[in-house]
Amino acid sequence: MFWFLLIALVVVVAAVALFVAGGGSGAALPEAAADRTVWPLPADRPMARSDVETLRLPVALRGYRMAETDEALDRLGAELAERDARIAELEAALAGAQAAAMGGGGAKAAGRTEGGDGEEGEKKE
């Protein structure tokens, strides 16, 4: 029985080795056709929260399709970075406007106080 299993194992290993080494016709395999699903994210506008909530990434044999998942995450990252930059720009503009208002408002308030004191002084005399 042992010899039979040993010979069967040798025959199977030899057959697999010949199959792999032979390789058939030797021609390269043709490119696989892309089996991508329709892209659910809008291409003509920035993504909204509802777009992200409805996003369903296509599933492959061992999980999500890496290329499509990476593409979706790259786009989300780029749009978030763009929004963060815009928010920072607007916050800087707001801080500048507030600083200008405080600087201009402080001078006006000081002028009123001085003018008010001067007027009261004139009235008292």
Rank of each mutant, 00 (worst) to 15 (best):
E79L: 02
G23H: 06
A48G: 07
D84I: 03
G63E: 07
V16T: 15
E82W: 06
I87P: 00
E122L: 13
G24I: 02
A33Q: 10
G118D: 11
G106I: 05
A88P: 01
I7L: 03
L90A: 07
G104N: 09
R83I: 12
R65M: 09
S50R: 10
A60F: 03
M47P: 05
L29R: 14
P30A: 01
R112A: 09
A28S: 08
A15F: 08
E71W: 04
L76K: 08
A8S: 14
R49D: 12
V20D: 03
L5R: 09
W39T: 02
L76R: 06
E89S: 13
A48I: 05
E119R: 10
G121R: 11
S25V: 01
R49E: 13
I7E: 00
A21H: 06
V20F: 08
R83Y: 05
A21G: 11
E125P: 13
R56V: 15
A27M: 07
R36D: 15
D35Q: 11
V11E: 02
A17Q: 07
G121A: 15
A43S: 14
L73R: 14
M47C: 13
A99K: 09
W3I: 13
G105T: 07
A17M: 10
F4K: 06
V13S: 04
D74K: 06
A81W: 01
L6M: 10
L18I: 13
A15T: 13
F2N: 10
G116W: 01
G115I: 05
A95I: 02
L29V: 11
G106H: 03
E53T: 02
G22I: 08
E53S: 01
R62P: 04
G63A: 08
G121N: 11
E79S: 01
G96E: 15
G106C: 05
A85E: 04
G115A: 14
R75S: 02
A34S: 14
A81V: 04
G23Y: 06
Y64L: 15
L18P: 00
P30T: 00
V20I: 15
V11G: 03
F4W: 04
V38T: 14
A67G: 10
A32W: 01
A107Q: 13
E82L: 12
G121F: 08
T113D: 15
F4E: 12
D35G: 14
I87W: 02
A43N: 08
T69A: 11
V11L: 13
V38R: 04
A81G: 07
A99D: 09
P46R: 04
G116C: 00
L80Q: 14
A95V: 06
M1N: 04
G103C: 05
E68P: 09
W39K: 01
L73W: 11
A101K: 05
A15G: 12
K124Y: 05
D51M: 02
L5I: 15
G24D: 05
A97G: 14
L94A: 15
A81H: 03
F19D: 11
R86K: 10
V52D: 03
A85S: 01
R65D: 14
